[in-house]
Nucleic acid binder design. Structure first.
Lengths: 334, 334
DNA sequence: CTGAAAGCGCTTACAG
DNA sequence: CTGAAAGCGCTTACAG
């Protein structure tokens, strides 16, 4: 591989001159002939900069790592897009990984932990990550920005407004006339599950009796399980707020299997929007969260952190969560 | 940040000794007391190796980059898993990116192109990538392993057996008694669309008349468009092979909207398996491709390439594509 | 068994 | 306007 030294030799100049041409630094008004010779040599030798050397010398890698708990969750599509766009604006490269890969001792983790390759980590672990690994991560000098609701400011974090999302989903059902509204999915987290908090808030505001939440987890199975539990209970609700789109889709499938007509007999709203909501029948009504804005904000804030500039962390309330009315909600049958 | 030099000072030894302890190299039988002192200093200072420096010195990064054309395509879940597992076995870190990010001049591309940070690239571009960028990539010394069907050996590539997948999907429909089978989705590529080739082969073998393919692309919309074209045509088929799961799901939705009962009036098989096939109603019958094995193979072969060892490229025929019978196929109504 | 030294490829003050 | 030199943090022959 050709190096700057090689170019210097071929062009008959010093390495510093080559670096100047390459980086457009200082020697800006260098002799035209010199510059031309250098550029010719660069082209001739097919020079490629060595990023490792540059990172070492500059003491920054120009890269942020994004790690999420489940790479193929459709919900991240927009998040990645926002992160990428904001990063590109700042000349930062983005590199993505899965929480699953972050077992202690894994090469991926070692790479993230190692100095010099990654300037900051944007992490959404969804509670799935080893506390030990998390601790190790936190003890490092490279900043870790959490992208999920935290309620305390122990770590820097940014999040969409999950409480408002829960409230919007529940409110939409209440406005349609439902009074028997259940909440299904997610976990009983610490701090309290924010979407469930939103559900509670909407129910109380409408003077309706909240039902005990069914924290059945994430994924399609969580929706099916939730519906089964509801059917086994004393009185079926007429409407369900589901913590997550994929769970809502799972619930829709389970309802079809059980011969429950959605939306005629049962209304369903899923929190978070994704393409699959448009694909199933009936189409799923969802609450859309500003994931792209979240990505942009995460990069902004991590950059601010890196630069020592003042940060603006916490919940992103603009744009607010928005109900996307599709086909899974109708007024209750009577 | 503490460096090896700092540790050496604190422990009262030379930097080489620190390196020896850290890497477990040569000085293997060093004085127990020395080693203990060094280890204490490492712990005390919270030493973290600088990966950029190491990569520079060793002239290898210990990382492979995986770039796919659409990060959130559910089909990649298994591919990533296979890649990750095989990479971990070899002590390699994996870093993921989206083809979309590889625009000329983007920091991500620069990072991939630059020497020293990435030892090899595993790429699935699905024909979506700029020919120019592709050319640049190919001109670099770091090997690029393609993970998609190529038919020629211009670049190193590995692929699942797409021809066999097309044949299996079509064969399944023929065995169910269908004679009017259409092919929808994908592109009219160069080399010829291998799944369509498989369709053709199965039809001919059964002495059935193939229909002209409807190359409507990828994604859910491609399925809906394909169905619309079929309905506008002279005679509806009784069964459809869809090039891709997501397209098949889109086709299912469009069929429901049009009042066409699947599978009673129309049978559908999607190529490639994904969770969503299990979630929709009717459940979608698919052909499962060994994506995990593909990932493992890609890493194996890229390692062989790097090591200068003999490679075994091309189609992975074991395990063969497998029909996953769910609810979208029935014998034709008469 | 341990240390001094060179060098990976780059950037950046500093001198001329 | 251009060059010589130091140094980022590590690894690895080589000498003792």
């Amino acid at each position: 591989m050709a190096t700057q030294k090689d170019i210097a030799r071929v062009a008959g100049v010093s390495p510093s001159t080559v670096a100047a041409v390459l980086n457009g630094t200082k020697h800006t008004r260098m002799g035209e002939a010199t510059r031309a010779r250098v550029e010719a040599a660069i082209a001739e030798l097919g020079y490629i900069p060595n990023t490792a050397a540059r990172a070492l010398r500059r003491q920054q890698a120009g890269t942020i790592a994004v790690v999420v708990e489940n790479l193929e969750n459709p919900v991240y599509q927009e998040l990645f897009r926002g992160i990428y766009e904001a990063a590109e604006e700042r000349g930062l490269a983005v590199v993505v990984g899965d929480t699953m890969w972050m077992r202690s001792g894994s090469p991926f983790l070692a790479r993230l932990l190692g100095q010099g390759l990654v300037d900051a980590i944007v992490l959404r672990h969804g509670g799935l990550m080893d506390e030990e690994v998390l601790g190790v991560l936190r003890s490092r000098p490279t900043p870790v920005m959490l992208v999920e609701y935290q309620s305390d400011d122990h770590d820097p974090w940014v999040s969409v407004d999950d409480v408002a999302a829960g409230r919007a989903a529940t409110g939409h059902l209440i406005e349609a006339g439902h009074t028997e509204v259940a909440f299904v999915g997610g976990f009983d987290t610490q701090p309290a599950n924010p979407r469930h908090q939103g559900y509670l808030s909407a129910m109380q505001q409408a003077h309706l009796e909240p039902r005990p939440p069914l924290f059945t987890g994430f994924g399609a199975q969580a929706g099916a399980t939730g519906l089964a539990m509801l059917r086994a209970g004393e009185s079926m609700p007429t409407a369900i707020v589901v913590n997550n789109v994929m769970s809502a889709v799972g619930l829709l499938g389970a309802a079809a299997d059980a011969g429950i007509a959605v939306p005629e007999q049962l209304s369903v709203v899923g929190i978070h929007d994704a393409e699959v909501a448009e694909l199933v029948r009936p189409r799923l009504t969802t609450v859309r969260l500003p994931m792209r804005a979240l990505g942009v904000r995460a990069v902004e804030q991590v950059s601010a952190l890196l630069a020592g500039a003042p940060t603006q962390l916490g919940v992103i309330s603009d744009p607010p969560p928005q109900v996307v009315a599709r086909g899974s909600v109708l007024p209750p049958a009577r």
